[in-house]
Simulated assay, not measured.
Amino acid sequence: MTAEKRECASILVDAGLSIVKACLFVGISRSTFYRPERDWRKADAAVIDAINAVLDKSPRAGFWKCFGRMRFKGFPFNHKRVYRVYCQMGLNLRRRTKRVLPKRIAQPLEVLEQANYQWALDFMHDTLYCGKRFRTLNVVDEGTRECLAIEVDTSLPAGRVVRVLEQLKTERGLPKQLRMDNGPELISATLTDWCQNHNIELLYIQPGKPQQNGFVERFNGSFRREFLDAYLFENIGQVREMSWFWRLDYNEERTHESLGNLPPAAY
């Protein structure tokens, strides 16, 4: 920045302005204007070598980690000089900024009592007996309370969500609406583009308002109590197999008070 101001002052002086007025105009002192330029790469060669030595061993280290390693090795440079050189070398990493969601408008939880019109999606998580974590993607038909799918794996990105919907499309067709929260998999371009291509309306609930997705949250509670908390699982394959049998029982045998004490399949 100082070099740029000195260059601007020089241009003003060449144009006929006095040095005093040129320095006042760009905001530098006359001593700065008269000071001869120096090559910071030569003047700070020792600092550059020290930084490069640290980054050779830890390429993703930020400034303070880098400075701490240099101090531990006994380099006498203070943090201001190291930070100046660190920035001049273009090493300062960009901060990760939180993605800003569009404003979600509260919508009434209106449901048509017909199949394949409104579906709800949500994720759950649990652990195997060995401590390994896994996730489940639950898909529920809001009109009939039928559980359409329970996808189980250690990772369920947006591509897997689309794959599950493609399987359901083959089995029973697609709904008009999908109700879901603002998870990263559910707001990704992969899913939103796929829904747009299939003319599916996305109904996002407001952040921190799970009651706006009440039907799938009610299902999650039953799934947690009757399945996830009831068994210890040894591996992912066992979870998939047992959840498949549990889903059949839930849809064909388990009665629901909201459906007149009928199972979803009979309703």
Rank of each mutant, 00 (worst) to 15 (best):
T97Q: 13
D153G: 03
A106K: 10
D141K: 01
A120K: 03
V140A: 02
Q107A: 14
R104W: 03
M89W: 04
H125F: 03
N116R: 01
L101N: 07
E110H: 11
V139D: 12
R95N: 01
R133Y: 02
R104E: 12
L93W: 09
V140E: 07
Y86R: 04
E151H: 01
S155Y: 15
L91D: 03
R133C: 05
I150H: 01
L112E: 09
T97P: 10
E142S: 01
V111C: 10
P102H: 13
A115G: 11
I150V: 15
R96Q: 12
L156I: 12
R135L: 03
Q118M: 12
T97A: 09
K103Q: 15
P157Q: 11
G131L: 12
R95G: 06
R94I: 08
N116Y: 00
L121N: 10
H125R: 01
R96I: 01
R94M: 09
D141L: 02
E110Y: 14
Q114K: 14
E151P: 01
A106L: 14
Y117D: 11
L101D: 02
R95E: 02
R104G: 07
L137G: 02
I105L: 07
A149H: 10
C130I: 11
H125L: 05
T144I: 10
L156S: 06
R135V: 07
T136A: 13
W119A: 04
L148I: 06
